[in-house]
């Protein structure tokens, strides 16, 4: 990515979309369409992006978008790709775009089926860690300790966040990777890599949500960066479900998680004991990840 060479023409996203100020998902889709376009078809399940993309006749993207029912993203993607192949357009990249609800919860069975059949498309989950579009209800992607509309203050999400990457790795798909908006170069590299691979590819993008997370809209990038630098959301890729590799070299002295949590109002009921629990969880996950990365070496 050379910034000097980028301009409005090289982007697939139009201005004037309906995302909130400082939206991480808008940025994520901007990066991903730029990296994968222009020959691109997007299958969009119910999510924030259903709204962001605009009401007909307006559209926020320069490529076709097919809206589909909530649980069906995985199977609609399979159909669109096969249809394009049948029509003699095998080179068009098909991207299924789903939020964390459409991936972790409601869309999981179709996703699992498509992954198991190794359908030839890229499944992108932009993860804002709750059902933000409908009013911030808890999803299985919501981290421990966060308050949501269904777990209002002083309650909080009690369970841990579902490890979707392990689930996808267990399907032995050719390529799976994590990415976030603070590292656009890393994200672009992964998407371009994914584009060259055929078979089922899965990209998990952490996209901060200022109203849902209780952050200032200006802090989106900073929060996303903190998520990586604290080890809360490590950046890595998995090939064939077995070969794990860190893409952003981990810093040995990770920033304490407290800094990441303290910057978000959704964690304001976290006392030191709960922060300790989450920190231990993150440390444990980090060690497990390091182990997998090291065995893969």
């Amino acid at each position: 990515m050379k910034i000097e060479e980028l301009n409005r023409e090289s982007e697939m996203l139009y201005s004037g979309h309906n995302a909130c100020p400082g939206c991480g998902a808008a940025l994520a889709v901007r990066y991903l369409t730029r990296a994968l376009g222009p020959d691109l078809a997007i299958v969009l399940t119910a999510s924030c992006w259903s709204i962001i993309s605009g009401m007909p006749p307006l559209t926020a993207l320069k490529c076709p978008i097919l809206h589909c029912p909530f649980p069906s993203a995985g199977s609609v993607g399979s159909g669109v790709k096969r249809g394009l192949v049948a029509k003699g357009k095998p080179d068009t990249t098909v991207v299924v775009l789903a939020g964390d609800g459409g991936t972790f919860d409601i869309g999981l069975q179709a996703l699992s089926g498509a992954a198991q059949r190794n359908e030839d498309y890229i499944f992108v989950c932009y993860d804002n860690e709750a059902y933000m579009n409908t009013g911030m209800q808890t999803s299985s992607a919501t981290p421990f300790g966060a308050r949501t509309a269904t777990a209002p203050y002083p309650l909080f999400k009690a369970g841990q966040k579902k490890d979707i990457m392990q689930i996808m790795a267990a399907h032995s798909i050719p390529y799976a990777a994590t990415a976030t908006v603070a590292f656009p170069e890393d994200m672009e590299e992964k998407l371009k890599k994914a584009k060259k691979i055929s078979g089922f590819r899965f990209i998990h993008i952490l996209s901060p949500c200022p109203p849902g997370w209780g952050t200032e809209s200006a802090d989106t990038i900073q929060i996303s960066r903190l998520a990586v630098n604290t080890g809360f959301f490590p950046l890595y890729e998995i090939r064939d479900g077995v070969s794990w590799e860190m893409t952003l070299k981990p810093d040995r002295s990770r920033i304490p998680l407290k800094e990441y949590l303290g910057a978000q109002r959704r964690f304001k009921q976290m006392d030191d004991r709960r922060i300790e629990i989450l920190q231990e969880e993150v440390d444990h996950d980090w060690e497990c990840l390091m182990e997998k990365v090291n065995t893969a070496d």
Partner: peptide
């Protein structure tokens, strides 16, 4: 198919927000 829209969303002057 026109269901996903054909006009750029830049018709929407979101600077008003």
């Amino acid at each position: 198919c026109y269901s996903c829209g054909t006009e750029p969303s830049s018709a929407n002057k979101t600077g008003e927000w």
